[in-house]
Simulated assay, not measured.
Amino acid sequence: MTSFNEHPYIAINWNDIEDMIDKLTWEKLTEQFWLDTRIPLSNDLDTWRTLTNIEKDMIGKVFGGLTLLDTLQSQDGIQSLKAAIRTQHEEAVYNNIQFMESVHAKSYSSIFSTLNTPKEIDKIFAWTRENEYIQHKANRIHDIYETGSDLEKKVASVFLESFLFYSGFYAPLWYLGNGKMPNVAEIIKLIIRDESVHGTYIGYKFQIAYNQLPSQEQEDIKNWAFNLLFELYENETKYTEFIYDDLGWTEDVKVFLRYNANKALQNLGFDPLFPDTADDVDPIVMNGISTGTSNHDFFSQVGNGYLLGEVEAMSDDDYSKWD
């Protein structure tokens, strides 16, 4: 019989931290904890009834696509990253991220159950299985999770968290900026706040491993990442045209995509690819992307500050100070 002393099981010790970013990120994510059940989505029904059928169809497709991507991230993405953890605390952070990605996916079902009939919901989920553009990006990222290197998996995860979600985020942020669907948008703001931390944290872990590579290997993975981004952007522009052309929003959404693609590259420590900056994005949407808490009364409408106080997403400076 093997002695336990030969192969002791190691308890995680949060009083002995190897990488302080693990501790800071754990604290940030737990401070930000939320559930969709606390957001009064039914308060948006009056606005929903005033929207055109084209708008309702767009919103259903947008949230269906987001549900698919959050499902991918919760079921496959974060699990694939655990193979390369550096510390037990890093795995604990990944566990938190994985759970919250499941919360995100479930939140869209709460929106559907409030706004849509069962038949409409079935149609939305059938669409996610059949649309070539949403399936292409999901399967492309999934393939990397299955067969890519540890660094390639982190690149794919950051591109998903910091870039691919944002074609879907545009619509609810636009409606929020125009005084419509505030509670639906509240959920999106909560998700954005989480994804901000997820993308920055995973990008930080990428940079640690990347900086230890020989220069030629660094160049190889960098070229691979930019080629992947080009491929995903090309597909994302087609997806955006499919979703938004009928509303005339497509070109504005593409600016938003390019801006967030640059943010994804920044999370990986790379220079931006596109000339677009925050100043080029529709200011109504940029205002909506602010992650501060809403001033909702606790006993009527519960905003994203509902037991949390004011919690801001982690900024780049929070991480760079620990480099």
Rank of each mutant, 00 (worst) to 15 (best):
S215T: 14
Q216S: 13
E217Q: 13
E217I: 05
Q218I: 04
D220W: 01
I221W: 06
I221P: 01
N223E: 15
N223D: 14
N223G: 04
W224Q: 08
F226H: 11
F226K: 08
L228E: 14
L228F: 09
L229M: 15
L229K: 00
E231T: 14
E231R: 10
L232Q: 07
L232D: 03
Y233S: 11
Y233E: 13
N235E: 10
N235F: 07
E236Q: 12
T237Y: 07
T237D: 01
T237K: 14
K238Q: 15
K238E: 15
K238Y: 13
Y239P: 03
Y239R: 12
Y239I: 04
Y239G: 00
I243C: 00
I243K: 02
Y244V: 05
Y244N: 00
Y244W: 06
D245W: 03
D245K: 13
D246H: 11
L247Y: 02
G248H: 02
W249L: 15
W249S: 04
W249F: 15
T250A: 12
E251M: 12
E251Y: 07
D252V: 01
D252R: 14
D252F: 08
D252Y: 07
V253W: 03
V253D: 00
K254R: 13
V255K: 15
V255P: 02
V255L: 15
R258G: 03
Y259N: 01
Y259L: 10
N260K: 12
A261F: 12
N262W: 06
N262E: 04
K263T: 05
A264V: 04
A264Q: 03
L265N: 02
Q266M: 07
Q266E: 09
N267Y: 08
N267R: 10
N267S: 11
L268K: 05
L268T: 04
F270A: 03
F270P: 03
F270R: 04
D271I: 04
D271K: 13
F274G: 06
P275I: 08
A278G: 12
A278L: 05
D279P: 00
D279H: 11
D279A: 14
D279M: 12
D280S: 13
D280N: 15
V281D: 03
V281Q: 03
V281F: 06
D282A: 08
D282W: 08
D282Q: 05
V285N: 07
V285G: 07
V285L: 06
M286Y: 13
N287A: 13
N287S: 13
N287L: 10
N287E: 13
I289K: 13
I289W: 09
S290L: 09
S290C: 11
